[in-house]
Design a protein around this nucleic acid. Structure first.
Lengths: 237, 237
DNA sequence: GGCGCTAATTTTGTGCACAATCGCTAACAG
DNA sequence: CTGTTAGCGATTGTGCACAAAATTAGCGCC
């Protein structure tokens, strides 16, 4: 298990938001769970801290962050700023192939929503924004957008009322339509209002529901990783 | 000399663009220069790599990046996307006090330009964009903008023809005027065209001019740091 | 019984030594 | 003369051991 793998597993785990806030991620404990040396965990932890996926307190260790709604406001504001700019750029530069790809994605979202497949829809819903970031074909923007979207995923998983999520699909379609028509102003507006609406859907639910232990959660995530990795290896070989 | 200090010194050094590209920053060598252990340097180097201020090659070490014009295109595109979004946001949300502050800054830029004080003007010119980022009052946007602007500083210092720089002042004023008038569309346009113009001013000068040695450059930077730090200490005490 | 202080324990931070890897050079074969 | 390979030197990566810091538990005192 190399550094990249551990980083991937932990970052996915943190983005999923399955852990409550302020959970201590002890170096020694993680080292035992992953079966690697403490230094390797240490490096990964500091990197995750730099990516703002957890909080590093000097001489105290790493803690999962409680993404409170106050911080949520900041993240969504940042997304409105960045993704509005992205929308403007994309409206001017999308190729026909990219537009087709977007249409396909929005349709898939609608399908998942109609069939009541909520996990799939949730995933596709996030991927829509990742997809837009990719289409800028700008690695810097991609990284910045990735970081922001990751952080909102934690928020959504924790605070969003599932009922409210349902209406998001039409908003994505509105963005798509404006982009496809290359109407810059309309695309920016659609993106802006979409992100504002998602933000308003966050409810301060007092969720202190206790999940399984850290060991179990990570074990599951490792299993998922091995599965995906195995599949990739088969495809490659 | 703690980690933060070393990071600050090196990041300022790299942003200044005084070093040519592909200069090797050996861990042992830097450790000796700063008079600290290799591990501390190591940590800082990796962090700087993560911030894309230098390049880390596995088993090879850290190298200053040659900010070639190809990469410059990407950075400026990212800035157009992000700072256009910022301009739109600011046009809607600036306070009167902030507008006054901006006016003051633009005037200072004009003064510096008129009096031919090029170093000051160059600094103010960059600070204009930092100032706009600050005024979003959004720490995430501030960090992202900071990273982008830092990277362009390297480019400008290296590739921009000094003669061409002179016309940038009016562009900043145009942005300011649109923001002050709260004309969102105009502000976005002004920002977009400004960043495009700056980019076109970059010339592929074949500058292989050899500067002083790494030791000398860093020694100078350390002196600057101590001076600033000393002043801060005096003000604090 | 509550509060504050101290000591012990646990956890992170750091320096050091060794191992692994890479590039370079030189020698040898074709 | 050129291309390839093996050995060497240098530099980074990693595990380990120790040091520093913080939390907690225990104890005495008010």
């Amino acid at each position: 298990m190399d550094e990249a793998a551990i980083h991937g597993i932990l970052s996915r785990l943190l983005m999923a938001g399955t852990l409550p806030g302020s959970v201590k991620l002890g170096e020694h404990r993680l080292a035992e769970i992953f079966g690697v040396s403490r230094e390797r965990i240490r490096k990964v932890l500091h990197r995750l801290g730099h990516e703002r996926l957890l909080e590093i307190v000097k001489n105290r260790g790493a803690f999962t962050i409680e993404p409170d709604l106050r911080e949520g406001r900041v993240v969504y504001e940042a997304r409105r700023i960045l993704e509005s700019g992205m929308a403007a750029h994309l409206a001017d530069n999308l190729t026909e192939a990219q537009i087709a790809r977007l249409r396909q994605h929005v349709d898939a979202e609608a399908d998942a929503l109609r069939s009541g497949d909520q996990p799939t829809w949730l995933r596709l819903s996030a991927e829509f924004h990742f997809l837009l970031a990719e289409m800028t074909e700008n690695p810097i923007v991609q990284r910045q957008a990735h970081e922001l979207i990751s952080r909102t995923l934690m928020l959504v998983k924790r605070y969003e009322t599932t009922a409210g999520s349902a209406c998001g699909c039409e908003e994505h379609r509105a963005i798509f339509r404006a982009l496809a028509a290359r109407e810059r102003g309309k695309a920016v507006k659609a993106m802006h209002s979409h992100l504002s609406l998602v933000e308003t859907r966050l409810r301060p639910t007092i969720c202190v529901e206790e999940g399984p232990s850290l060991e179990e959660v990570i074990a599951h995530e490792i299993a998922v990783y091995r599965e995906a990795n195995g599949a990739a290896l088969m495809a490659a070989g």
